[in-house]
Design a protein around this nucleic acid. Sequence first.
DNA 1: CGAATACTTGATGAGACTCAAGCGCCGTGG
DNA 2: CCACGGCGCTTGAGTCTCATCAAGTATTCG
Lengths: 217, 217
Amino acid sequence: MPVSLAVPAPHAMLPAGQPAFDSPGTVIRLAAERRLYDEGDAARSFYQVIGGMVRTCVFLSDGRRQIDAFYREGDVFGFEADGEHLLAAEAVTDCTLLAHRWRGLQSVLGGDERLASWFFGHAMHGMARTRRHGLLLGRGSAAQKVAAFLLEMAERGGSDTVVDLPMGRQDIADYLGLTIETVSRTLSQMERQGTIRLPAARKVVLRNSDALRDLNA
Amino acid sequence: MPVSLAVPAPHAMLPAGQPAFDSPGTVIRLAAERRLYDEGDAARSFYQVIGGMVRTCVFLSDGRRQIDAFYREGDVFGFEADGEHLLAAEAVTDCTLLAHRWRGLQSVLGGDERLASWFFGHAMHGMARTRRHGLLLGRGSAAQKVAAFLLEMAERGGSDTVVDLPMGRQDIADYLGLTIETVSRTLSQMERQGTIRLPAARKVVLRNSDALRDLNA
DNA sequence: CGAATACTTGATGAGACTCAAGCGCCGTGG
DNA sequence: CCACGGCGCTTGAGTCTCATCAAGTATTCG
């Protein structure tokens, strides 16, 4: 089953397009691997991705990292109900963001109904996405996880067959709950089986996407 | 890390108490193991648990089942943004529910602001809960999963040390992404180590809850 | 060109799943 | 009251997958 990797773009939530915020927002540039905010930080703003890729993640006591989601152009992330970010946000690549001040739930719900609907839709879809991701994490084999990941990246990318991976193997591993070695081995095995081609480490060509889909039944 | 097993009770979301719905709701009785609604059903209502326990789950193509959450007295479940239930809901035990008609997002957002806030809060907290659960599913060992499960059941139950499990081993396994054998073995091992006692299959006494907490660091 | 970084590949072992018995509790019926 | 089944739970043995440890290769960048 498909795993949605990111909250849908704003226009997916409201046919009429993105609602007008009271301010146009602040443009932020963030270099690759830099942190935008940390787990537990006050949620003063939320963000739209203009370019590049962002990941949200939690850090475990044993030093490992679990990536919750990848966000790319058009995606929105970082608004919280209770004024505190529950996940850290970091730049996967150099990226450009648009920051909007977040005044809390009350201001949104008391104001424009379309704005409220936009936020609510994001919250609900984010929940569905997180649930799918959790399901994949708990139940899938390594091959199933990698296949689902590739299909989702393909779906969100420009081409149906050529997938560009902006993130490294460690990011993929932390997203799927695997090790980099297992990710690498699984990709190599898929190439050996002719399911994919790997012209470069971060470029994948899907030769038989049905085979990938069949893995998750 | 603790795993929240259910959306908080309504009064946890709004200090002023549960908002008044336009209708008092319909009482529903459901026998153990009966299904309330299926995945994909139209989301005509949402529900409050009056007594007993409900589980929400998805069914995988290979016949396995993943339980998303257990809901008990006071919990609310079953409202969706897009008019369709994304998870099936089933009775774990005989239970009594209160059904409220769900007219979709617009009706909520256009009306009482407190009601909208109540729903939004539920959505956000549900997302946080699901995220924690997914994290546990992806990264924990069997012992970590079982320990987190027991601690959460204890926290939501009446006593700090005596935990009643309304659900069977299969339910626990499907919730934690394990097999019943592994759940059983893990519980037995914890008893051998003196961490817990098992006076009956569905009753657990926590003898050293700190040891359980330490497992998840 | 060299060094650092990222990725791949191999060997080994631990942990969980699978298959298969073996309890134990509880309700039913004799 | 006890014998009998049925069902849920536990336990055991073997297997498989993935994590770990350890090199080895490729790519990027100064």
